[in-house]
């Protein structure tokens, strides 16, 4: 039985850093996958839609932990070389959360009124410009709240890498537990750290959303003042049904 020493705190701090890196890198990959797959699912070519749809169904149906196992232990045997554990983790998280994100992108883009596409055609804008200058700027603010939910899920998902031996925050906790022989302090601390990171990310996304909406000509959103009860709740509520629904954000 002993205290958490400064050295042990340092292990946890390093773990936080790894967790943040993992979250950031996986989120970047997931965002890229989400946009490519989400837009492909709206492509006018049937074969493109089908391929993207298969990707979505397969990766959404996969358990993130099993995908990680597969990339860590099976893929190396097939390829003959080992993926850097960190990159295998990023790949696993990015590919699966990208699949969820594609549904967000697809839903938000599909929700832009038809008339906006038609006005783009009538002004003779080429297809790429219609997407980039007309459709995406309007779809983007709608994507941010569900993206925030996915980002929190992704942050929580990064803890899985500790099972694979990547020295993230959860892994650091196990080391500290072994060293101190006490579980309650360290696990309470790291749960709090995860919570604080999630809270900070939510605030950040809220700012991003406000900017995006102002940029989309909607003016400042009317929102209740900050109260403890509303730290996460107001966004979640609308999102709960939608994010849970497999079908889409809106139809």
């Amino acid at each position: 039985m002993s205290e958490i020493t400064p050295g042990l705190w340092e292990i946890l701090l390093d773990g936080v850093w790894i967790t943040l890196q993992l979250t950031f890198l996986s989120a970047a990959l997931a965002a890229a996958v989400a946009f490519v797959t989400g837009l492909a699912r709206l492509n006018r070519l049937r074969i493109v839609r089908f391929a993207a749809g298969v990707y979505f169904e397969v990766f959404r149906g996969t358990s993130a932990l099993i995908l990680m196992f597969w990339l860590f232990f099976v893929l190396p045997l097939g390829l003959g070389w080992q993926l850097e554990p960190m990159w295998a983790a990023v790949l696993a998280l990015g590919l699966s959360y990208g699949a969820y994100g594609s549904e967000v992108v697809r839903g938000a883009v599909a929700a832009v009124p038809r008339g906006q596409h038609e006005a783009g055609v009538a002004l003779n804008l080429p297809p790429g410009q219609r997407l980039w200058r007309i459709v995406l700027p309007q779809a983007w603010p709608e994507m941010i709240p569900p993206f925030n939910n996915l980002l929190i899920e992704l942050l929580k998902g990064t803890a899985l890498v500790s099972v694979m031996g990547v020295s993230d925050l959860a892994f650091g906790a196990a080391l500290v537990r072994n060293a101190t022989g006490q579980s309650a302090p360290v696990y309470t601390v790291i749960l709090l750290v995860y919570f604080v990171i999630a809270f900070a990310m939510t605030r950040g996304m809220r700012v991003l959303e406000r900017r995006a909406r102002a940029g989309a000509g909607e003016g400042p959103p009317r929102r209740a003042a900050l109260s403890p009860r509303r730290l996460f709740a107001p966004r979640r509520r609308a999102a709960a049904a939608a994010a849970a629904s497999s079908g889409g954000e809106r139809r």
């Binding site: 003779n124 804008l125 007309i134 309007q138 989309a216 000509g217």
Partner: peptide, 26 residues
């Protein structure tokens, strides 16, 4: 050129930008 029943202005662009966007891009 076409004018629509529902206007279909781009809500995320100013009035001026609505008018200049296509002449500039196209």
């Amino acid at each position: 050129g076409m004018v629509f029943q529902q206007f279909n202005l781009f809500p995320h662009m100013s009035v001026l930008r609505n008018i200049t966007e296509a002449p500039v891009q196209v």
